[in-house]
Write a protein that binds this DNA or RNA. Sequence first.
DNA 1: CGGCTTTGACCAGCGC
DNA 2: GCGCTGGTCAAAGCCG
Length: 203
Amino acid sequence: MNSTFLETSISQTGNPSFTSPFLYSYMTQDCGYNFQDCDFNNCQDFESSSFLDQLLVDYSPTNNNFNTSLSENPILQESSTNINHLREKSKGGIKKEKMNERHINAVVFRTKTQLEILDDGYKWRKYGKKKVKSNTNLRNYYKCSSGGCKVKKRIERDGHDSSYLITTYEGRHNHESFSIIYNNEIPLSFLNEWTLQAIPNGV
DNA sequence: CGGCTTTGACCAGCGC
DNA sequence: GCGCTGGTCAAAGCCG
């Protein structure tokens, strides 16, 4: 299985200056959870953790065993469905090139916060806003504004519990975050590192 | 003036 | 073929 469900808690970080789900994940390592050592094939690991509050899904086009059964949340299921849908396209050869360009992997976070935008250290340009059928809240579309970087993210409030913000990242940054460059903050590259570990075929 | 957001239009895929 | 839906584009407007 290649889907990885990872949930962490904002409050566990105890540092309100960090609003990035990536940073929350990073910070929770200080709470006793070492992502480098965790078993990505055992989702019980994550489900049983006491500080669960976010979701992460890794996707590889070569993985045929994507598991969407762990979440009952319709929006998260939709994200998973979309990912599976994209895989089917890839397998079928339909717009395979475009698929490979766009959806190398997807990471979905569900974060309990009143903030509308989580500062993940990268600079984003908003390019769309859409009302989608599956959610009464608007979905916002962003592209990384760094030249040559094709990472995208979608942000929407959970339609069933608006206290949660659902952030979906697609692709990997080909550069470090602006926070590192300008503020010397915690590097976010760890995400790419353990995403690669979680995807045996590494894309 | 440049960078960013807004927003309606457009496009592609899917199901019927 | 047609309508629905989600994703993207791009012109216009806003703001520092």
